[in-house]
Write a protein that binds this DNA or RNA. Structure first.
Lengths: 236, 236
DNA sequence: GCACCGGATTGACGAGGATCAATCTGAGGC
DNA sequence: GCCTCAGATTGATCCTCGTCAATCCGGTGC
């Protein structure tokens, strides 16, 4: 769960990051290892080429918010006043391309890259606004349905019924992402399963039976009475 | 969107204001009028020079989220795929400086301004993360205390007891910003008042009696036993 | 002055989700 | 195969906050 890296791990990574600062184009990270911590000096931002990372922030008393999950193509590590403002951990093995921080600050150095970074930052702002709608406006079942739907969408899985979505994060991560508890997330998964909207192959693999009905759940327009009393959909 | 320009980048904006002379130098907006709507094509982003704006998004069914309040120095209107992704309305009379959108896309055109915009976008990402912590982690009293504190902080009001904070937004706006209802916000204001942490001069003007105690409320470390002294607390 | 009106406050009540606790499941390890 | 353990699920109960409704307050018009 809480990936508490010992000091040796941390310094081990730091030496690695120094190495890549000098040249190497790629960085690999094992599952459950940390890329950086809140408060660390920002040396690079990272383009995720493969794998999934988790961005988190914690309150003094330990309450945790998952800010985002980073998928291939995403850029993570934008600084605030030169420092990282989240923790970043790998949920799966991850391959990253580091970009030196100075590129952020000097627009003339590489204008195209700089514009791409600004574009990525604006996309992130937009994505965070969607997340706001979830956190602030939706109730628990809507949040969970929205989450599954967004994972399906971004996974490239076309919005096709039968799509199999892999969830590399645990229920606790989903809960902290949605502002719920693990138990509530689990109950909502179960409700969607019993409703025939999704199927579960283990906890990490979701098959979307009906994307359209999932979308309705995400908006709180739960099918009022879709009772299928003969079809054996795993009776209640 | 607590994007406040750092000193170095302020000058970048100023120096380039001449370069973008084809755009009108200023734009004024009356209170309660709209600057743009969600879905509008983005022609400019705007630096707020005076006044306060409100950024909102609504769900199909009318549920509303206030994404941010924009104060002088903030930049509003970053596009997503070329479109505005929020509504923007003036809460007070507002004076704005427009920046043409093409500056966002062509980094070579004005590298300094481009870097300043990226910096502003990154600051906004950081501010939104703070907002996530509020929406996802905090309970109602903590949210309201955090909100008042953040308004006091950004208002430039030094963190001094006795600071008078003006709230140009109504209770409903605050509620939609915090993911609460108007009634709950009102109750939390009252609780803080009865606790002697704040005083109210009408609904829009808050005097912070004790910034330190307000900060404790914001973290949920409510003073455990600040009992009104009728009975000497002779515990033990 | 008075009536009016929108926003804010207060109260009563109930539902939704958190909390606490008891299984259940499945992936490793041997 | 069996054992172990972490994560997931399910259940029972509590409490925060949303909902509905009444009232209050400050401003505006007459």
């Amino acid at each position: 769960m809480y990936v508490t890296l010992s000091g040796e791990h941390r310094s081990a990574f730091r030496s690695t990051s120094r190495d890549i600062a000098t040249a190497p184009p790629h960085l690999k990270l094992a599952a459950n290892s940390a890329l950086y911590f809140e408060g660390d000096e920002v040396s690079h931002v990272y383009i995720i080429e493969d794998g999934v990372v988790r961005l988190t922030r914690v309150l003094e008393d330990g309450r945790r918010q998952v800010i985002a999950f980073g998928y291939p193509g995403d850029i993570v590590g934008f600084p605030a006043r030169g420092l990282h403002n989240t923790d970043c951990d790998a949920l799966t093995p991850v391959r990253l391309r580091p970009i030196r921080r100075c590129v952020l600050e000097d627009g003339a150095q590489d204008p195209d890259l700089h514009a791409a970074l600004l574009d990525a930052a604006m996309d992130e702002i937009s994505a965070m606004q969607d997340h706001f709608m979830m956190l602030g406006c939706k109730n628990a079942p809507e949040k969970v349905a929205s989450f599954i739907k967004s994972m399906a969408d971004r996974h490239g899985m076309m919005a096709a019924d039968g799509a199999n979505v892999h969830l590399p994060m645990g229920r606790a991560d989903i809960a902290d992402f949605l502002g719920l508890t693990m138990e509530t997330v689990s109950r909502c998964f179960t409700a969607l399963r019993k409703d025939g909207v999704i199927r579960l192959n283990g906890a990490q693999s979701v098959v979307i039976v009906s994307m359209e009905r999932l979308a309705r759940h995400a908006l709180g327009q739960n099918t009022p009475a879709p009772r299928e009393r003969h079809c054996p959909t795993l009776a209640a």
